[in-house]
Amino acid sequence: MLNLKKLHHIAIICSDYERSKKFYIEVLGFTIVQEVYREERASYKLDLALNDQYLIELFSFPDPPPRPTRPEATGLRHIAFEVTDVAAAIQQLQAKNITVEPFRVDEYTGKKFTFFADPDGLPIELYEI
């Protein structure tokens, strides 16, 4: 047994660094922990936190290949964040011109949830707690 403690971070490669940086900071509310430019890779690495918890590494690379990101594609299905009010979160995202699916209800828990996408189409879920 590995004795894992918790999720440390999620690494995301984006196609347009400035657009994704703006999305994760201005739309989702992440804060910058550290931003570095790695000249040998022609790549930025942006460490982001949510509520003072380090969660996401956002990378830029020259011409990254596209990857299927629909929820049913092989690999990472989506990332999910807890919210207290899905309907209010949907309204806030729509006010920023973010397309959001209508909320659904989890058949097992009775909780509301919805999906939207980051600038590269990575599915993001909001799950009401």
Rank of each mutant, 00 (worst) to 15 (best):
48 L>N: 00
95 A>H: 09
18 E>Q: 12
68 P>S: 14
54 Y>L: 12
3 N>R: 12
71 P>V: 14
94 Q>K: 11
96 K>I: 06
60 S>C: 05
91 Q>H: 10
45 K>P: 00
25 I>V: 12
37 Y>W: 04
75 G>R: 02
16 D>W: 04
72 E>K: 13
114 T>H: 02
57 E>Y: 07
9 H>C: 08
103 F>H: 03
77 R>E: 06
15 S>E: 09
14 C>Q: 01
25 I>T: 14
24 Y>L: 06
95 A>V: 05
125 E>W: 08
60 S>V: 03
28 L>R: 05
56 I>T: 09
93 L>Q: 06
16 D>V: 09
13 I>S: 02
78 H>D: 06
107 E>I: 15
126 L>Q: 00
71 P>Q: 10
5 K>F: 07
126 L>V: 11
72 E>D: 15
94 Q>L: 08
43 S>F: 10
46 L>T: 00
65 P>N: 14
80 A>C: 12
89 A>K: 13
38 R>K: 14
50 L>H: 07
36 V>P: 05
128 E>R: 02
91 Q>M: 13
4 L>C: 05
105 V>G: 02
36 V>Y: 08
32 I>C: 12
33 V>Q: 14
34 Q>C: 00
116 F>A: 12
39 E>Q: 12
98 I>Q: 01
72 E>R: 11
14 C>F: 02
121 G>M: 10
129 I>L: 12
17 Y>C: 07
95 A>K: 07
40 E>Q: 13
123 P>S: 12
4 L>E: 09
57 E>R: 09
8 H>M: 02
68 P>D: 14
31 T>W: 04
126 L>Y: 03
36 V>R: 14
2 L>Y: 03
70 R>S: 07
26 E>W: 11
37 Y>Q: 07
98 I>K: 02
17 Y>W: 09
122 L>Y: 02
41 R>H: 06
57 E>F: 06
17 Y>F: 14
20 S>A: 11
107 E>C: 14
15 S>I: 10
8 H>N: 11
27 V>D: 04
33 V>I: 15
39 E>L: 08
50 L>E: 07
38 R>D: 10
117 A>Y: 03
119 P>F: 07
25 I>Y: 02
101 E>S: 13
50 L>Y: 08
117 A>G: 09
50 L>F: 05
